[in-house]
């Protein structure tokens, strides 16, 4: 290519000027003055008056800083107190990242799951930089298909909120949002200093300081309404030192299992999922059907009751009594032997 055509041009685009500025400031170890930039960096010499140059240079500096480019200022030399500029190379550059094939595959799959424009843009930006660092994030992933109905598990309908939330957390801003403890209750407005987002078995939680209640609170994302807004100045929120968000979530939403064993009769060949975690006591025929008695950990009473009731005549709760009663009431509700809670609803 003939380089002379490159040098004989008149017009220069803004992106080209900014590129030249970054290249010049990256290449210098000492701070260089605005005057020198104006004189030597291609794109500034024809900026017109001093004032026009200053305005242009000021805007350019801000633009670079907004992109996270670490522009530093300092004295030009020991003897010259004039302020100059340079880019801190160490802070500019992404340090070496070496991912194994499995790690890269995990990144490749994970980054395909976002659906909201902000998070897609952010992850695409990250992928571009990782690729530029030599990471092959396109490890063959024909092995993993993601259907149109899939997004990150548990995030259905909450991704926009998550996007707003993550950027508020990044910039240390308080958030305000409508929240309801369950789907059937009305929304109330909550004001929270967000500390972080934690996922736990497909559930998403915001952990932070609830300003109105002046206490640490955990909010399930699916209970947060769509219009979340960041309020207050950036940098105002900082999680307390050493805070363990996961521990807070565990305490707030932890399931409290019932200890002890349940005794259940199951028909032969049925209620397989129950058997899988049970110990067989012995065979027993019940109402003319062959089966066996099993014992298993109760765990969540409600969940076990639901499971046993769902098997209908194939599983019978024998002990303890509260479990038996709970299952029976579920069955009665469907056998039409009770009015149920909703007898008046149906027309």
């Amino acid at each position: 290519m003939a380089t002379d055509t490159r040098l004989s041009r008149v017009a220069i685009s803004k992106v080209e000027r900014l590129m030249n500025l970054v290249i010049a400031l990256l290449s210098t170890r000492t701070f260089i003055t605005a005057d020198r930039i104006r004189a030597t960096v291609y794109g500034y010499s024809d900026s017109g008056t001093d004032e026009a140059f200053s305005r242009m240079f000021e805007r350019d500096k801000n633009e670079l800083r907004d992109l996270g480019i670490p522009l530093e200022t300092g004295r030009v030399s020991q003897t010259d107190p004039t302020e100059g500029y340079r880019i801190n190379r160490d802070a500019y550059a992404l340090p070496a990242v070496e991912l194994t094939a499995d790690e890269a595959a995990a990144v490749a799959v994970a980054t395909r799951l976002w659906e909201s424009p902000e998070l897609i843009t952010a992850t695409q930006g990250a992928l571009l930089k990782l690729r530029a660092a030599g990471v092959d994030v396109d490890a063959p992933h024909a092995d993993v298909a993601i259907t149109s109905t899939a997004s990150l598990p548990g995030l259905r309908g909450s991704e926009e909120v998550l996007g707003i939330l993550l950027s508020a957390i990044d910039s240390g801003r308080t958030v305000q949002f409508p929240h309801r403890p369950s789907r059937s209750e009305p929304y109330t407005t909550r004001t929270v200093d967000p500390w972080g987002v934690v996922t736990d078995r497909g559930r998403w939680y915001l952990v932070g300081h609830d300003r109105d209640r002046d206490a640490t609170r955990t909010f399930r994302l699916s209970r947060i309404g769509a219009d979340m807004t960041a309020i207050g100045p950036p940098g105002a929120v900082r999680p307390p030192d050493g805070v363990n968000l996961r521990e807070i979530v565990d305490r707030a939403v932890g399931d409290w299992p019932t200890s002890g064993q349940a005794r259940v009769w199951v028909a032969d060949g049925r209620a397989t999922a129950l058997r899988r975690r049970a110990t067989v006591v012995g065979p027993r025929t019940l109402g003319g059907r062959a089966g066996e008695e099993i014992t298993l950990e109760i765990g969540m009473l409600d969940r076990l009751s639901r499971e046993i009731a769902s098997y209908g005549p194939d599983a019978v709760a024998l002990e303890p009594e509260p479990l038996r009663e709970d299952v029976l009431s579920r069955l009665r509700a469907h056998a039409g032997q009770t009015d149920g809670v909703r007898a008046g609803v149906e027309k």
């Binding site: 992404l94 992850t123 990250a126």
Partner: peptide, 16 residues
């Protein structure tokens, strides 16, 4: 070298 990841870029990947 590529630019360092911005905070939203890192967060988007890490959370996913």
């Amino acid at each position: 070298h590529p630019l360092r990841l911005t905070s939203p870029e890192a967060t988007g990947v890490l959370v996913a």
